Lab assay of single mutants.
Amino acid sequence: ENVVSAPMPGKVLRVLVRVGDRVRVGQGLLVLEAMKMENEIPSPRDGVVKRILVKEGEIVDTGQPLIELG
């Protein structure tokens, strides 16, 4: 699984990683606000951040690609 998608609609509050960062399974990639709750979106696997597909403040839909892992 190379693309991390939004599990719910919401607003991207914070991106916690940068392109080139090594991440571990379960590590927070970004914080999504949904229904006034902050939800940290975890990495599904170990890898390297290849691309960040959203910006802070952006509104996303369920299933929208957020981050690509390499």
Rank of each mutant, 00 (worst) to 15 (best):
E1C: 01
E1P: 05
E1Q: 05
E1M: 00
N2M: 11
N2H: 13
N2D: 14
V3Q: 14
V3R: 08
V3M: 08
V4R: 00
V4N: 10
V4F: 04
V4I: 03
V4M: 11
S5C: 01
S5H: 08
S5F: 11
S5M: 11
S5V: 07
S5N: 09
A6V: 08
A6E: 02
A6C: 00
P7N: 03
P7C: 01
P7G: 04
P7K: 07
P7W: 10
P7T: 06
P7H: 08
M8H: 08
M8A: 05
M8C: 00
M8G: 15
P9N: 14
P9V: 15
G10T: 12
G10P: 00
G10H: 04
G10W: 09
G10Q: 05
G10A: 13
K11G: 11
K11T: 10
K11R: 09
V12D: 00
V12Y: 02
V12F: 06
V12W: 00
V12H: 02
V12K: 00
L13T: 04
L13R: 14
L13Q: 07
L13P: 08
L13D: 04
L13G: 03
L13A: 04
L13C: 00
L13H: 08
L13W: 11
R14G: 12
R14V: 11
R14S: 08
R14E: 14
V15G: 14
V15H: 04
V15L: 15
L16Q: 06
L16R: 10
L16K: 11
V17D: 15
V17Q: 14
V17T: 03
V17E: 15
V17P: 11
R18I: 10
R18W: 04
R18C: 00
V19C: 01
V19W: 03
V19N: 07
V19I: 15
G20K: 05
G20Q: 10
G20T: 10
G20N: 14
D21N: 03
D21G: 05
R22K: 11
R22P: 13
R22H: 07
R22Y: 14
R22V: 13
R22N: 06
V23E: 05
V23I: 09
V23N: 06
R24D: 02
V25N: 10
V25M: 09
G26V: 08
G26D: 13
Q27I: 10
Q27S: 09
Q27M: 02
Q27H: 05
G28P: 04
G28S: 12
G28W: 07
G28E: 09
L29A: 02
L29T: 06
L30M: 06
L30H: 04
L30T: 12
V31H: 12
L32G: 02
E33F: 10
E33M: 10
A34I: 06
A34P: 06
A34G: 11
A34T: 15
M35P: 09
K36F: 15
K36D: 02
K36G: 03
K36L: 08
M37P: 10
M37E: 06
M37K: 05
E38S: 04
E38W: 13
E38G: 04
E38H: 14
N39C: 00
N39W: 07
N39T: 09
E40W: 10
E40L: 11
E40D: 03
E40M: 04
I41K: 02
I41L: 13
I41P: 15
I41A: 13
P42Q: 06
P42M: 04
P42H: 08
S43Q: 02
S43V: 06
S43R: 00
P44N: 14
P44L: 09
P44D: 03
P44G: 14
P44Y: 15
R45C: 01
R45A: 12
R45F: 02
R45E: 09
D46F: 03
D46H: 04
D46R: 01
D46K: 02
G47K: 04
G47W: 08
G47V: 06
V48D: 12
V48T: 15
V48R: 04
V49W: 00
K50D: 08
K50Q: 09
K50H: 10
K50M: 12
K50P: 11
K50I: 15
R51Q: 02
R51D: 14
R51Y: 11
I52W: 09
I52E: 15
I52M: 07
I52V: 04
I52Y: 10
I52D: 10
L53S: 03
L53A: 14
L53W: 11
L53C: 00
V54L: 14
K55R: 13
K55N: 06
K55F: 13
K55I: 08
K55T: 11
K55P: 03
E56A: 08
E56D: 11
E56M: 08
E56S: 02
E56K: 13
E56P: 02
E56R: 04
E56L: 04
E56W: 04
G57A: 05
E58R: 08
E58G: 02
E58I: 12
I59A: 03
I59G: 08
I59K: 07
I59L: 03
I59Q: 04
V60G: 01
V60C: 00
V60Y: 12
V60Q: 03
D61W: 13
D61V: 11
D61I: 13
T62Y: 11
T62Q: 06
T62R: 02
T62H: 04
T62S: 10
T62A: 10
T62M: 05
G63Q: 11
G63E: 09
G63S: 05
G63M: 02
Q64E: 13
Q64S: 10
P65L: 09
P65D: 13
P65W: 07
P65S: 08
P65H: 14
P65N: 07
L66W: 02
I67T: 10
I67L: 01
I67C: 00
I67F: 07
E68D: 12
E68P: 03
E68C: 00
E68K: 02
L69W: 08
L69S: 13
L69Q: 12
L69V: 13
G70P: 15
